[in-house]
């Protein structure tokens, strides 16, 4: 097993967690927030998927699924590459989606592109330094992949927690 395979496995775990947490959940519950200034399941799923799309496709040198596959239209948003950083609470709370299935389909589409890229990554590629002078030290491909897994896994955990908070104890066994 190599580093890129560990990352691919991590992405599969994230996708599996989202499928379990989101399948069959109503739009009302998806967009519910448990307190002022907190993120909903819908926003978290959209955001983590956008982070993965942005970070992995930039590494791959490929266009983003968001614009290229027209996902922005499904979310009624512009094609520009916004992934939710720095949104004020009102904007997060106003975020909505068509259905859980659209959130999951968006995620599956991004995951397929991420995995196609990871299959091409060699152990040597992981040490390539990125041309991002705003960071000191400059990140490597490996560091960027670590940050995607970290971000996405944390958010997947938050979605699972919210599902339990709204859906009650034992939801994951039903």
């Amino acid at each position: 097993m190599e580093g890129a395979a560990l990352i691919a496995q991590g992405l599969d775990r994230i996708a599996g967690s989202l499928e379990r947490s989101l399948t069959g959940v109503s739009v009302d519950e998806l967009c519910r927030v448990p307190g002022e200034g907190t993120n909903s399941m819908a926003w978290l799923a959209w955001h983590l998927t956008r982070v993965q799309d942005d970070h992995l496709m930039n590494l791959a040198g490929r266009p983003l699924a968001w614009a290229e596959e027209g996902w922005h239209e499904r979310f009624g948003m512009p094609a520009e590459n916004d992934f939710g950083m720095g949104w004020p609470p009102e904007q997060v709370q106003a975020f909505t989606c068509e259905s859980a299935e659209v959130l999951l389909a968006h995620h599956r589409a991004v995951l397929a592109r991420s995995k196609a890229y990871l299959a091409t990554v060699t152990p040597g590629d992981l040490d390539r330094v990125l041309d991002e002078p705003q960071w000191d030290p400059r990140p490597t491909v490996g560091v960027r992949l670590v940050s995607v897994i970290s971000d996405n896994t944390q958010h997947a955990g938050q979605i699972a927690y919210l599902r339990g908070l709204f859906g009650g104890y034992g939801w994951q066994r039903s």
């Binding site: 775990r13 967690s17 200034g37 907190t38 609470p89 896994t153 944390q154 997947a156 955990g157 938050q158």
Partner: peptide, 28 residues
């Protein structure tokens, strides 16, 4: 490798939950 990956997934997911709860209780 399987247990190593489970260690990570579990730890990171629950850390995300802990961080979310602190934000919920404490505010943005």
């Amino acid at each position: 490798a399987q247990r190593l990956e489970m260690t990570l997934t579990d730890g990171l997911q629950h850390t995300g939950q802990v961080a979310y709860l602190r934000g919920l209780f404490e505010g943005r």
